[in-house]
Design a protein around this nucleic acid. Sequence first.
DNA 1: AATGAATGAGAGTTCATTCAT
DNA 2: CATGAATGAACTCTCATTCAT
Lengths: 208, 208, 208, 208
Amino acid sequence: MQIKREFADGLGLTPTEAARRAQIIDATIEVIAEFGYARTSFARIIARAGLSSTRMISYHFTDKTELITATLLALIDDHDRFVTERSPMDHDRAAMLRSVLTAEIDYLASEPKAASALTEIAGNARDSDGSPLFEVVVYDLRVGRLARQLTQGQREGVFGAFDAEIMARAIRATVEDIAQRLSGDPGLDLRHHAAEITALFARATSPG
Amino acid sequence: MQIKREFADGLGLTPTEAARRAQIIDATIEVIAEFGYARTSFARIIARAGLSSTRMISYHFTDKTELITATLLALIDDHDRFVTERSPMDHDRAAMLRSVLTAEIDYLASEPKAASALTEIAGNARDSDGSPLFEVVVYDLRVGRLARQLTQGQREGVFGAFDAEIMARAIRATVEDIAQRLSGDPGLDLRHHAAEITALFARATSPG
Amino acid sequence: MQIKREFADGLGLTPTEAARRAQIIDATIEVIAEFGYARTSFARIIARAGLSSTRMISYHFTDKTELITATLLALIDDHDRFVTERSPMDHDRAAMLRSVLTAEIDYLASEPKAASALTEIAGNARDSDGSPLFEVVVYDLRVGRLARQLTQGQREGVFGAFDAEIMARAIRATVEDIAQRLSGDPGLDLRHHAAEITALFARATSPG
Amino acid sequence: MQIKREFADGLGLTPTEAARRAQIIDATIEVIAEFGYARTSFARIIARAGLSSTRMISYHFTDKTELITATLLALIDDHDRFVTERSPMDHDRAAMLRSVLTAEIDYLASEPKAASALTEIAGNARDSDGSPLFEVVVYDLRVGRLARQLTQGQREGVFGAFDAEIMARAIRATVEDIAQRLSGDPGLDLRHHAAEITALFARATSPG
DNA sequence: AATGAATGAGAGTTCATTCAT
DNA sequence: CATGAATGAACTCTCATTCAT
């Protein structure tokens, strides 16, 4: 997985440092996808990355929170690029919803580990004092944009009347549920799921 | 919270033991709801229960798995009773779906800690070797039954064509998402959410 | 195994109490034979005995030391009776050594659990402060008598010149080694071992 | 005791790490010799080694099994070197047996703690699930070699007819019994014991 | 830029024993 | 005669982090 190299630099990082950070972040994604957020430790990450000491992580990230934050940002960046590339602007709003849902499911198929890690971090990451880490960030990036698109579609008359945020959350929750099941059962029929939830939310958002 | 007293006895437990187990289980639910499953430790549980030593837990439960299992069973028992009491049998299938969704949201309002703990345990509980604990059990109790009801409704013609299991999972994921948000924001307008998701899934399941 | 009932009474014990003590001692022997002394706990003993609480042990024995002491005395009593019955007095000294060795091996075959437990307790039992419990007792009962018989045989001229105590310890160590191997491999050919060590120590003690 | 320095390096260990491991292994040997295997804990080992925390052990050894294994290997290595150096090749077989027994007793005199720890580990070390750790390894190293030498001597006609493995086990059991007594009574007359058991097993193995 | 070395805190579990009835 | 209930201490092991090169 080499998906977040572009993200890693851009700050004042040397190429070597950027590469190390990317390597560690990749390993973190894989460990989270496999073991879940709660069982993700520095020890497991360095074992996965083939590094010698957890000191390597502490050297490149000030603490666990920064590592997880960097990982989440890389994942969101990657996810956004993936979905954006597959959501053409010339569609009407109703087609837009279909293409978004299809792109989301395609993402699960294309990057199952990343998808699983994204869900795990967004839902479970907590600070050392126990408070949730990314509530607001994740809301805006993963629900708010979709809600705004739905609202716009309502204004254009292609969608019926509903609370756009609740609808967006229902869509997000449904997709993430599929992501979690996929991590436990890689043989899941994603094409079928894509067709079903596309139809489901087409009916749920229809004006009539 | 006194919701699992009836569950606790019935086995070969003395009244004192049943009461202690219930006390510990209550505290476990509260800790899980507040800290999440991953940060739930014996130390926090006994602090919450006002007991003296973690040894008290080990005395009444053989290990952590048994404690969590007993807690989950108590939660499921309580949840089932709550929902069953509010799902009249004389309704038609379409009304049934409405009443189920309403009952689920009412449960969130009535027992927010229990609802949160239920989601946490079902999703995150793992054995000491890392394998998920309750996958199958939880599926059947929390998705399978609803899927069967939807299938029956399809046979009776009140619902349209869709994959009943995927629909049931979407409903479950949506409700649990609301539960999680509620645990972070107790002021959430549940009445509004109930109306919205009832309408959402009415459209999503409608035959036309 | 009912081998130490006679030992249990004789003190000021009621029949019920004597029976309970015997039951607990029997379970203790079995647990030690199976798990070794170090892994023998009250919990395992009451599980084996089918009792409800470790309190049962504390009630009948003041502490672990007393339980182990009583168990050892029961084992020694049983062992002595077994060997004595099979060591006729009308033999000459050389035949006596053969019959003692044969009796010891027969005991391993007849009561393998008891033999294993006897070795385990004699070798590993320690007080709560870590000091060995039965060094002197066990020496006299298990080595000293044999050493005296060997010395007597030397006086009678049937044995050669050797340090009787060292010889007795070698014999004891060899028999106990066989006992330990037997507990790990119940299929051990004891008849063959009896023949071999009888011949071995016949040569080792011979006058020529 | 500095007996396992040569063993400790040779792998990919830094000098500091090798020294720490040797220090911990030395302390482990002393604790086992003094308290027995069952009462050997990390806490006692670090106290003996003068270290600050049991975490020091966990840092250098993955778990208790690895610590005990490394200790046993160090002990066997040390013991082998000691005995090999004192067993000249130009002797005939009968002299070989004498020199082996003498070397074994000399080892007890020279390294009583090591000898005691070796016996303790070989006999009592168990995995966390209770299964014995070193049965096969220890058999081959401590009995098998001697048995093969005896068999060879029988072929050459210097020994009589006996089961070589049973004889080897008798010898091993006798030596280890002396080792155990020595740990309880440091004043034991080892020179006398060496002479006695050398004569004992010379007679026991003699052809006549 | 990287690493080796060390650490205090906390986890769940087992231990023999004691209190009260 | 028996039991239920409770307990403090000790156990091995994992955690993220820090110090010193």
